[in-house]
Design a protein around this nucleic acid. Structure first.
Lengths: 246, 246
DNA sequence: AAAGAAAGCGTATATTTTACATTAACGAGC
DNA sequence: GCTCGTTAATGTAAAATATACGCTTTCTTT
């Protein structure tokens, strides 16, 4: 028996990435709807997401949505907010698109949104192309379809809050990274400058931040030492480190 | 036209109260289901909640659920987690009860849970009696129907976390309260003792905690000064006070 | 070998946190 | 109206943490 969608329930994912300069969000271009504004060259951008199947776990739906776009299978997904206003899908284009996609008489859709942090270079670009997905700077993630602008903003607020109490940063960085990347990650996400010496002092106290013997390659200046995150140490010391930063 | 339920979506509310000794949760006794274990004298306890109507805002559903039990109309409700496993309603009794209540062919229900903090003496006991609701200590809130044990635990975790960054405490206390009630609230909820002098020093720095000229009445010892919370001052100073405590 | 560019480091001062014990104010009971 | 029981209320010194601040090192490029 073919699995069927529940016409009232969807999952949307806000996937964050960081490229050493900017915080980015992964968005997907949707097919143009018959009758959609013909001035537009192509369909609108939206967050990755879909209706869920009758027998599907919410988290599994989120995992499969992310899995289509990103190779890493160990992405920490966090459910952060539900959007359920009966009229949240107000644009006729949005409704049309949904009905065409699903072949269902869609009226109201309650969406459960997840967010996840992704190492950008792990999401291979052929996968992205295949699903018409692209990374855009969080500042440019406006004018999205449905109420996805709001969802992105809320997810970003969540991320900022969470980042001051939990070391999420390591999911956004490659396995080996210089301390200055970590600092700029904080500065970009929290929109706040930190003193380099004090930042290092503080961050180096964290037991789960491990110095490696590797160095930056192919840079035109003094190469930085590379560090990595040790998840086991983090998990074992979690209790004592409840509010660890800022 | 009579409003109809969406058979897949419900809202459940975890309502917390504090009585100067214990953290409490408001639970509701459900009607006994035909065929339910006859050894039990009465129906099981559950969280206040219900399916939502087709055109209903999620938050409005939560507000109406709380409104039935509590007189205060200014309860801050916070959506905190969705429970959507396809088999979260596993007990036959739970399914039976739902189907009988709603007259709908219930299979899977995704529930959006909210929590709120309530001044216990504002929830008049006749309202509670009418809906077979009662305050139970958080420790005794086990063996609830559906997966409500889990929901209560998760809400409590949320509350603990939130309480260390936001002054939620004032929603749990009467308008005028002694500082020692505030301290015991923290101690009970966070399960942690604080030094009385240091606690006072810290808490008295908060600009939104206002000394009144009232004193405790009818106590058999030195009466304490009573304080109150000024919400306006809190809102105006919020930015500077992001992580304010502990 | 000189210049450019980012990495990496230390100290003095201010602020915050911690630890700790006694006196003050009231009602109850004699 | 004095004593006792009970909880409220308070200060200080030592330790830990956070802040402010500028120069030297190490590598690449030319």
């Amino acid at each position: 028996m073919k699995p069927t969608f529940i016409p009232h329930l969807s999952v949307d994912c806000v996937l964050f990435g960081f490229d050493d300069k900017q915080l980015k969000v992964l968005v997907q271009r949707r097919d143009k709807v018959e009758g959609e504004d013909s001035k537009l060259p192509s369909g609108m951008l939206k967050l990755p997401g879909r209706l869920i199947y009758e027998e599907e776990y919410l988290k599994d739906a989120a995992i499969s949505i992310v899995g289509e776009l990103v190779e890493d299978s160990n992405i920490p997904l966090k459910q952060f907010q539900v959007y359920g206003n009966p009229n949240r899908i107000k644009s006729p284009n949005d409704l049309l698109w949904l009905q065409k996609q699903t072949n269902l008489p869609i009226t109201r859709v309650v969406t459960i949104s997840f967010y996840a942090l992704i190492k950008i270079d792990e999401s291979k670009s052929n996968l992205l192309d295949k699903h018409r997905a692209e990374w855009v700077s969080i500042k440019d993630a406006v004018g999205l379809a449905f109420d996805h602008d709001v969802i992105v903003c809320d997810a970003y607020d969540h991320l900022k809050k969470e980042l001051t109490t939990t070391p999420l940063e390591f999911h956004l960085l490659p396995q080996y990274f210089p301390l200055n990347s970590l600092q700029s990650l904080y500065e970009v996400i929290l929109a706040q400058k930190f003193d380099n010496r004090n930042f290092r002092k503080k961050i180096l106290k964290l037991p789960y931040l491990i110095e490696s013997d590797k160095k930056e390659q192919d840079v035109t200046h003094r190469p930085a030492k590379l560090y990595q995150f040790n998840e086991d140490i983090y998990k074992n010391n979690k209790r004592e480190l409840n509010l660890f930063f800022l």
